[in-house]
Design a protein around this nucleic acid. Structure first.
Lengths: 148, 148
DNA sequence: ATACAACTTGAAGTCAACTTTAAGTCAAGC
DNA sequence: GCTTGACTTAAAGTTGACTTCAAGTTGTAT
């Protein structure tokens, strides 16, 4: 079962030009062509593109994804390279998770801040708030700002 | 207590040119200048820059951070705008967390895959593996790939 | 056979977020 | 007063990841 670039793009919810770009960057070396030169994508190409999208969303640059792909095609001699790259990326994901956790707490605090302000009609309501009136989960946050 | 741009950059672990860029983009409208035109950063400027960094790491573009800042300076009439922007960003963070969760599982699977391959000296070891030999947390993942 | 949408390429354009460069100014130490 | 390192600006350059354009080809439907 083959798909044209347009069909594959629709399946993956990306622009056809993106897939051509990936191809040009050496990220799709296994995609076959028709006798007329038209790309013929297979289901397993979609699997790789899904993995690619996953790595990309985790902040991995296309160059590194390209390295990984190249190593994969070189065989067992590169297993440790690949493992190393994956470990590195795993570490990066863990750090990003920590970062997002911090950001979420901060956004939740700000959200509470502005919800309270919206109800009162003014941000000034926060001037007359005792620490006890700040929800507990945010106190560490605001306390830290007092210090800074 | 004032800091020069170089001092502040060191504190925040960014390049001085980055802070100049932020200034040019209207993200530091409150930073004072000496009589000679040199920027004088205060501790509260650092707080804002930390918040900015947090939002940035959460994927918020500088333009939106600028909007938020402008609204903050416009007073209580913009509270709902600000709240809306924060809600939107919060949603984005939640989606990113979900995405990172998926990616982490995938990376952990790949890590296991290559660790096993490294011990065996070849990726071929995975050809002769029964589903029971795949750690349980990865089975849903590999099963999904069988389908696709 | 012809029309027409969807494909092809290389090259140029875009965007965000910086970074670098060039030319000049400020301020602290000697 | 002079040197020197850190600052100033405007403008141009860089990077990554695409997108758009122009000109031409493919393949399906009539």
């Amino acid at each position: 079962m083959f798909y044209t670039i347009g069909e594959m793009a629709r399946k993956l919810n990306v622009a056809p030009s993106t897939l051509r770009y990936y191809d040009k960057e050496g990220l799709l070396p296994f995609v076959e062509r028709s006798s007329g030169g038209i790309r013929m994508f297979k289901d397993e190409d979609m699997e790789w593109l899904r993995l690619l999208g996953c790595l990309k969303k985790a902040g991995m640059p296309l160059k590194e994804i390209r390295s990984f792909l190249d190593w994969s095609r070189q065989g067992d001699a590169t297993i440790s390279h690949r493992l190393e790259l994956l470990e590195k990326q795993r570490q990066s994901v863990l750090e990003q998770q920590k970062q997002l956790e911090d950001t979420l707490l901060m956004l939740d605090y700000k959200r509470w801040y502005y919800q309270t302000a919206q109800e009162a009609g003014t941000c000034a309501v926060h001037d007359s708030l005792t620490p006890e009136q700040v929800p507990e989960q945010f106190r560490a946050l605001t306390a830290e700002w007092e210090k800074g």
